[in-house]
Design a binder for these strands. Structure first.
Length: 239
DNA sequence: GCGACAG
DNA sequence: ATCTTGTCGC
């Protein structure tokens, strides 16, 4: 796919990648969302163990009923290794394809990983948001950088995730007695927007509905139980 | 120098 | 991320 503007990420060197992050950092916007969201999308990627094949899924969910409406599935190869802090260079090319073929316009895209909660404030959610010039946020299962105070064990408990004296995200107990998730703004939305959307997309599980469904479809694609392409969904059977 | 380190 | 079944605990 030579028309993919992010294709060069696959062959960039780690040192240049780091410098690009420092330059892109200037473009970050934390302006609050202007339109209240109704349609929100979740993105996730599944990998084949011993290969460079990855499978991406972006699922648009209607906040009114929390049900999936449409999804985009794409498989592609990567040649950039996983390096903490440089995750975007490995996953953005395939995500770009999936995003551009999605036949819906979700107000916000929630990515699996960090946004601002990154050593250079350029986690995959922020990076992708700048590339597509669209509101994004990150929800990660583990901390990459920073720390926070102890959280109460009940669902809803939260604390600021701090790094070098600045707030970079929010640790959120998304379910009682379960390790927290880490929420951070990606681009074009505020900390408040990110937090509110993370809470709104929670159901009875640890991860937001958007992320759960994207994860499920990315795995189906990898196992050959679903095909690449864009699909209208009506799948309350896989909730 | 040593350990930490999204997916 | 992925390899993998049952099992302990709220």
């Amino acid at each position: 796919m030579p028309d993919n503007p992010l294709y060069f990420y696959k062959s960039i060197e780690p040192l240049e990648a780091k410098q690009l992050q420092k330059r892109l950092r200037e473009k970050i916007s934390l302006e609050p969302l202007d339109k209240p969201s109704q349609l929100v999308a979740g993105a996730d990627i599944s990998f084949d163990r011993g290969s460079d094949l990855m499978h991406a899924a972006i699922v648009a969910v209607d906040l009114r009923d929390m049900q999936p409406k449409t999804l985009s599935l794409v498989s592609d190869r990567t040649s950039f290794p996983y390096i903490p802090g440089l995750l975007a260079f490995r996953e953005l090319p395939v995500l770009w394809k999936a995003w551009n073929q999605l036949d819906a316009n979700p107000e916000v895209l929630i990515l699996d990983g960090h946004g601002l909660a990154h050593p250079r404030r350029m986690g995959i959610a922020t990076h992708f948001g700048i590339e597509i010039d669209h509101p994004t946020m990150g929800v990660a299962k583990n901390i990459l950088t920073g720390s926070h105070s102890t959280l109460a064990p009940e669902k809803g408990a939260s604390a600021d995730l701090m790094d070098e004296g600045e707030k970079v995200g929010i640790a959120l107990r998304s379910r009682t007695n379960v390790n927290p998730v880490y929420v951070s703004p990606g681009h074009k939305l505020s900390f408040g927007d990110a937090y509110a959307l993370a809470v709104r997309t929670l159901t009875k599980y640890k991860l937001p509905q958007t992320t759960r469904l994207a994860h499920k479809w990315a795995n189906k694609l990898r196992r050959g139980e679903a095909r690449e392409g864009v699909w209208k969904v009506d799948d309350r059977q896989l909730l």
